[in-house]
C-alpha cells in the first residue's frame, strides 16, 4: 500500500465543512414557465455569495425558496446540513428566525415609525420591551450611518438611500446568522450604491454572518462578494471567486459581466 495515501489510524481526519446553505436540484415552474430548472449551489459558513443573472433568470425565486416564501416543486434546501423542506412548521420557523433579509425596495412598514421597523422582530418576539427596542434601534441606525432622530420619522419621509439603510438596519438588528440581500443597490446613484455596499460588507463581517446577495450590478458584486454564481435559464452555470468576474473564461458570465450585446445570452425582444 502506498504510505502517502494511507493515514495513521490515530491522526485527526479533517471533516469536510458543511455548507451553511446547500441547494440541490431546485426546480420551480409558474404554469408552463420553468423558472428554476435544477439549481445546485453551496454557500459556505461566513462567506459572501453573490448570485448574478439577468432579469427573470430566477435569482429572486431562488432566495424566496430558501426563505420559505415560495415552495419549490422539487429539490432540497439544506441549512446547516438539514433539509428545511422536510422540517415541521415550527422547526422551519426556528431556522427562519436566524435569517435576515433586505428587500429590493426596502419593504419598510409604512404604518410604523422607523425605529419600530428596525426592531420589529425583537418587539414581535418580545425579546425587548419598547424602551430597550428604541435604544437598540438607535444603535442599529448608527451602525448604518444614520442619526437616532431618524427613528421617529415615517418611512415615507426618507430618501431612497436612507430607506435602504433603514432596511439594512432592520435586517441586521436581530443579529442573524444568514442575511439575504435582494438587489441592494438598485435605484441608487453610484456613490450611494458604494456606500450601501460598504455598509453591507462591514455589517456582515462584524456579525460573522453568511451572506447571499442577488444583483446584476457588477461593481456591487465585486465589492460585496467573496464568491459569485451565475444563474442562466434556471440553472447555475458558473461559480467562482467574485474578483474574477469579467475574466472567468465562461462566455455566459463574461458577456454578462461586460454587458455585451453579442454572446450566448440572447435577450428576448419583440419588434
Amino acid at each position: 500500500m502506498n504510505e502517502a495515501l494511507s493515514a495513521p489510524l490515530d491522526a485527526p481526519v479533517a471533516e469536510p465543512a458543511v455548507p451553511k446553505i446547500r441547494l440541490r436540484g431546485l426546480r420551480k415552474a409558474f404554469g408552463p414557465k420553468k423558472v428554476l430548472d435544477g439549481v445546485d449551489l453551496d454557500v459556505m459558513p461566513g462567506s459572501s455569495m453573490v448570485i448574478l443573472g439577468g432579469s427573470g433568470s430566477g435569482k429572486s425565486v431562488t432566495i424566496k425558496c430558501i426563505l420559505g416564501l415560495i415552495t419549490p416543486d422539487s429539490g432540497t434546501i439544506e441549512i446547516d446540513g438539514r433539509n428545511v423542506l422536510a422540517m415541521s412548521a415550527r422547526e422551519r420557523e426556528a431556522v427562519l428566525d436566524r435569517t435576515g433579509m433586505l428587500f429590493q425596495n426596502g419593504a419598510l412598514f409604512d404604518s410604523l415609525p422607523v425605529w419600530e421597523n428596525v426592531c420589529f422582530k425583537l418587539l414581535a418576539q418580545k425579546r425587548l420591551d419598547r424602551r430597550q427596542a428604541r435604544d437598540k434601534a438607535a444603535q442599529a441606525l448608527a451602525d448604518v450611518g444614520l442619526d437616532a432622530s431618524v427613528g421617529d420619522l415615517s418611512p415615507a419621509e426618507l430618501s431612497g438611500g436612507m430607506q435602504k439603510r433603514v432596511a439594512l438596519a432592520r435586517a441586521i438588528a436581530s443579529e442573524p446568522e444568514i442575511i439575504f440581500f435582494d438587489e441592494p443597490t438598485t435605484g441608487l446613484d453610484p456613490i450611494m450604491g458604494a456606500v450601501i455596499d460598504g455598509l453591507i460588507v462591514d455589517c456582515v463581517k462584524r456579525l460573522g454572518a453568511t451572506a447571499v446577495t442577488i444583483t446584476h450590478d457588477m461593481a456591487s458584486a465585486r465589492r460585496i462578494g467573496d464568491h459569485a454564481a451565475m444563474i442562466h435559464q434556471g440553472r447555475i452555470v458558473w461559480t467562482g471567486p467574485a474578483a474574477t468576474l469579467g475574466q472567468t473564461g465562461n462566455p455566459i458570465v463574461d458577456q454578462f459581466a461586460r454587458g455585451e450585446r453579442e454572446g450566448p445570452i440572447k435577450m428576448e425582444l419583440r419588434r
Binding site: 426563505l67 427562519l96 425596495n105 419593504a107 409604512d110 404604518s111 422582530k121
Partner: peptide
Amino acid sequence: EIGTMRVTDQIDALTTLST
C-alpha cells in the same frame, strides 16, 4: 392597505421577520 403591503413585499417582509 393589505394589497399595497402585498405588492410592495411588506407581507413577505413580515414572514422573514418571524411574524
